[in-house]
Each structure stands twice: as C-alpha cells, then as structure tokens.
Design a protein around this nucleic acid. Sequence first.
DNA 1: CTGAAAGCGCTAACAA
DNA 2: TTGTTAGCGCTTTCAG
Lengths: 330, 330
Amino acid sequence: MNISEFAREAGVSVSAVSRYFNNGYLSEDKKQKIKEALERTGYTPSYSARAVRSKVTKLIGVILPKLSSESISRVTEGISQVLGAEGFELLLVNTANDYNREISSLELFRQNRVDGVIFLASVFTDLHRSLLSKMRIPVIIVGQELKGYNCVCHNDEGAAYSMTKLMLSKGAKRPAFIGANPDDKAAGMDRRNGFDRAVKEAGLTVDPKFCEIAKFSMESGYEKAKRLFSYKQKPDCVFCATDNIAAGAMLYLREQSIRVPEDVMIGGVGDSRFDKVLYVSLSSAHLHYKTAGIEGAKMLLSEMKNSSEVHRILQLEYEIIERGSTDRQP
Amino acid sequence: MNISEFAREAGVSVSAVSRYFNNGYLSEDKKQKIKEALERTGYTPSYSARAVRSKVTKLIGVILPKLSSESISRVTEGISQVLGAEGFELLLVNTANDYNREISSLELFRQNRVDGVIFLASVFTDLHRSLLSKMRIPVIIVGQELKGYNCVCHNDEGAAYSMTKLMLSKGAKRPAFIGANPDDKAAGMDRRNGFDRAVKEAGLTVDPKFCEIAKFSMESGYEKAKRLFSYKQKPDCVFCATDNIAAGAMLYLREQSIRVPEDVMIGGVGDSRFDKVLYVSLSSAHLHYKTAGIEGAKMLLSEMKNSSEVHRILQLEYEIIERGSTDRQP
DNA sequence: CTGAAAGCGCTAACAA
DNA sequence: TTGTTAGCGCTTTCAG
C-alpha cells in the first residue's frame, strides 16, 4: 500500500498523510481519521521514498575493523547510545581489517546512503586520505588523529608512558615491549613512543630484541612472549600495547613458571573486563572507549547541524589502574 | 549531480547509465564513455532513489540486546561475514535490553527499510509475536527457538546438562546454580532445565537457596556467589549459565580463599576467550556463536531468494571444554 | 542494443 | 489549514 491508496482509505488527501508523519500541520479531525486508518491497514511510509525527496536517511555509517573486540564494541556502544536517542540508525560495516573493504565502504557512504560517517580507523593510506577528502557528508574519525579532520582519540602516548614508568619506578631494569603494527599510529606508533620516552627518561636503553610486534590477539601475545623469554638475559618487565596481548603473554609465563610480578612485571592498555580475573590481575591503562564513542557521536551530530570549517581534535585522557601484575615494592 | 546531468556529461542517455550500473546490457563504446565520465565527475547513483523503484535496499536489519558482549559480537561477526560477501550491509539496532527499543525496531523494519531481519532475541512477549507475524519480509531468529519462525539456536539444555554432569561425575554432591532470567528461554530456562536434569539423574536434589538468578555480568556473578557461600553448608560445585557469571563468581572465591577446584568446582557456558587465562582456567560448554551467525545469515539469504512456507529450526550442538576449574579426580 | 517516457512513493511549493 | 501538483533520482517498460 502506498500513500495515495492509504489516503483514499483514510478519506483524506495525500498531503494530509504526509503532514501527519512530518510536521503535523493538521486538524485534529484528520489526525484522528488517519490514526484509525493506520490501525486498520497497518500502513507504514517508505523510508527510501522519503529519503529521495528529503535527502535525509537518518542513517549513520560506522566503519570498524572488527566486531568482536572489547574496545571496539565499547566505542560502538557509546555511538549507538547517543545516535539512537536522536533517532538515527547505524549502518555498520565490519571491514575485518581488510583495507579494500574500508575503501569500498567509504565509497558506499558517498552514495547518499547515510547522513554522516564515524570511522574507527587503524591505518591511513593516501587512498584513504583522497577518499576522505571527497566525502560530501560529515566524517568523524575515532581512535586516531588525522590532520584536517574531526577526531576523537586517546592519549596513547601518555598511557604507554605512564604504564611503563610505573614498572620502571618499581625497579625494573630490563624493559621489554610487545606492540602493534606501527602503521597504526595510535595503538602502534604512539604507544611505542610512550614506552620509549619512559625508558629513556629512566636512563635505560632497550635491547632491540626485546621489542616485538604482535597482532591484536592473545595467541599473538603468547607467541611474542615466547620469543622474548628465549634469550639468556630475560626482561624484568613487559609493556604490552593491549590487554589481549598482555593476557597471552601471561599465559606463556604461567606455563613456564615465570612468576608475575616477582620475576617480571606486566602492564597493558585498555582495562579490559577480564583484567581483574586473570591468574595475576593485570595492571592496565584505562582508555575511555565508550566516552570516545559518545563524544564522536556528539561531534557528528553537531557537524550535521552546521558543518564548521574548523576541525576539532578531542583527546581523551587515560587512567592507570594498578593491579597484581605490577604489585612490587620499589 | 543526478543521473540525467551525468548522462549529459557522459554523452549518453539516462537509460544507458542506469544499465551500466545494473544489468549492463550495453555496448562497449558507451561503457567506456561512462567509465571515463565517472572518473571525471565522481558521480555515484543514489541508493535511496534506486530502492524506491526496485524495492531492494540491500540492507539487513539486525536487532541485538547489546553490543559489548563476546557471544553477541561473535554472532554478529558471522552474520556480517556472510551478508557482507553477498553485498548486503547491516542496519544495526542495539536495544540495550530495552523492550521498547526492540518493539520499535521491529516496527521500523516493517517500513521498507530493510530486505530482511535477523533478530537476536532474549525474551518474547505477546507483542513481539504479534509484531513478528505482521512482518512482510523474512525474519530469522538467532539464539532462541520460537515456534512458527525460522530459528538458529543452541542446545542450551544439553550444554548445561553435560557441564553439570561433568562436575557431578567428579564427585560433587552439593550442586549450586547461578542462572539467568528464566523468561529468556535459551539462556535462562533451558540451561536451568539442563542443570536440573543432570542433578536429578545423579540422584541428588538441589537446595532451593543454592539457586540464584544473575544478570549477564561479572559483577552480578560475584554478588550471587557471595550469597551462595554465605550459608554454613557450602556448595561443592557451581554451574554458571554464562562465563561472565562464572568469572565473577570465581573472583569472589579467590577473595575468600575458597579453592577451585579443590573446595568447589565451577562450570560455565560460552567458552569465552578469557577462560583459559583466568586464575584457574574455566571449564565451559563451547557454543558455536559465530556459526550461529553464519547459518542465520545463510538461512535469511535463502528465505529472501524464495520464501518457504516450512519453518526450519537449526539447533547447533555444543562441546564441553574441560579446564582447571573442574580438574579433580573422580 | 537504444532512448523516451511513464512511473516508484513520497515531500513541498503553491494556490486556494 | 487544505488539496493539487510538480518534482526527487532512479528503473523499467516499450517502441524502435
């Protein structure tokens, strides 16, 4: 059933029906008639047709690298909370860390499919930049900082710095690092830089073989820890760029009966839900993921209302949560 | 830019452009012209306008109770994998366990917004049923079994039964239960029934005060364990309806220096990623969440191709993973 | 294989 | 306030 059939059924004009669903510039009498006919027929207007005319889809595109990650789902939770309250729905694209999917979804979102985009990015290439510059709708980048765009990001460098500093302040002398792909500026590069700064500040140097790059998984953390502890000289603290990596590393340490924190301290980033139930509870830098989602969504809403020429970068701070894995006397 | 402007720019007719993006019943010459103009102008057709005519949105509605849950995100991962490969996008509604949001999103999806719906349901009311029966597009229910609908679900009863049986076979005599809201048939009722069956089969009875209903969180598991262990007579095994509940319970046990598995065995459901890194690794019934998503998506695709009158229920089996928390000699 | 033209279902400008 | 009507941008006959 379409609007004119329905209008006939309700005994009103087409525009009365349209007004009923929009501004409501309508007499009570007709409102009533329409309401009754609605009950009878179960008619619902077509969103697509509406979108053609009004150029509003009430849809927000969200691009994310994976779904089953605690940090990402927390961000998405925040986004969904704010946007849902404003009557927007989320069009989710899970790129599965596939670069091409990322590009194609940016393409997709140019096709008048959504009113705005939130992009949980990890790595930017030139193609990303070129595509982003062509977007005719507001885009907010969450989790990374990209010059010339509106971003919500974390203080990754600071979080890594403080976490590492904590371990060094407890007397560690042979720090090791299990990080992420440095092309990922936030989780890879910045956290590496924070680690380096703390080490340098403590007047120490890092043995290059004490630096490993892992994937974002427990399995990878396990493997890298195995390598780190295969040398005669062992690290006495390990900074891990994510809690998943840290948990995997700790799994290996337990298998090898290497004691945490007595033999080696471990620090992570993210403050995952499981941290406090690990066999030794994990110290971690809490990042405000959900808040990042909330703020990103708010920023997008404000951009959609009136797009500003000034780009804003919102950096959220961190909080060091000390738990068992660094519980040593200095 | 719209199709006719673009057609003029490309020096072809409007229908040639339309055909280019659809069936491609077109001469090479014009294809080439269009391709070039595409490069020049960056034109993209409007999805909404296309949807009005063709009645196809290439969008699938996914209704879920929350995002930040490992089980749910695994299901969604599976859905996204299958549907993404077929060129569908996901329109995600996070109901945040809010009954009204669930209803309103079903309403929303009736409005020609999506081509099909996957509903990760927890509790069904009459209103749900009435709304579901009015849907004019295929709906697949994942995680629950609802008569008269196409469903993909787990053998929740069996999983709970086997997990409980495992603990009883190791000599436990005072079983306890921390479950979920029984209105949630799968996670609440069925898992409770499985627990009961195993207990009965072992010739035991459960003290009613040894049965608690928790929320789906560690915090809640912690609280319920506290109550369970507040009596003089303590349980010697606890079946938890989810791993999160189990992890929370174990947190309490550790605080109280109650030993797992020596003093009490713990069994969970879901085989969460963190299970093996807990301070005592957690035995759990693995449920095939991602597979459920994959199968649900496939079922939806087949329903969208040609809707069948016969409703199918696909029940996925489970797998008991024995770990430290039940590692006792019988 | 092609282009003109008639819609798809809705919104919004317009005249009443 | 109302109803009529001309589009929105695209697809899809239909006649060539």
